[in-house]
Amino acid sequence: MTEATTTQSMPSDAVADLPTGWQLGGRTFRSRLIIGSGKYDSPETMVRCLEASGAEVITVAVRRVKLDASDEASLLHYLDPDKVLILPNTAGCYSADDAIRVARLGRAAGLSDFIKLEVIGDERTLYPDVEGLVAATRTLVDEGFTVLPYTNDDVVIARRLEEAGAAAVMPLASPIGSGLGVTNPLNIQFILEAVSVPVIVDAGVGTASDAAVAMELGVDGILMNTAIATADDPVLMATAMRHAVEAGRLAFEAGRMPRRQWASASSPTEGRVGD
């Protein structure tokens, strides 16, 4: 026996092997994970999770300044717009008009034309009012916004949003903040087949496997907030989500083996000892 003289070096960082980038609203991103900035116990934890997640886009809400509590700092004190795309949302809007107004306020901050559009239609499920959503998308696209609408997992509405000029469609995996994962993968697949704009699963992911399942369907990205922010260790979960999104994407691109009913031995059936 002698020691092998040559060794094949393994890639030290599988992330480096990821295909380079994807397009959203005319911009190129490497990370396919978009995170929200809500529900964190402190802005410092939020920033650490952003770093751990590798996300290049983070959502924020537009809210009234509390006039008598001015120590409440704007999130702009914690986020560097040169390093991360700050994506305002219209969360909490229950009509197209309200959402359009909030979108305009968000854009007036002067950071970008991107808006995560939400028009909520039901308080308990936080399901979208799709009629208002399509109408608001049309108006905001006309005004030059890059509109990323949060929508239900309905292929017909997804197609309408694309026709209205949405830069992506963002179907829910399950209700916002529920952590139930992808409850209807078939519907996500229908949407993937039907539209040519990016499909981003927005809401419902609870843990890393949920994110991997969604990515394996072939969606372009995932937007999540609660799964990271309310984990026992948010920074660790942000790291897990980064890996899950990357693993799910790699698995999708690798192309999974077909499912089959019966076993198929991995070792040769010939040359067994004792045959």
Partner: peptide, 10 residues
């Protein structure tokens, strides 16, 4: 007047 800013949100 409406005076608004960015806060945490998903």
């Amino acid at each position: 007047l409406e005076v608004v800013h960015f806060v945490g949100g998903g």
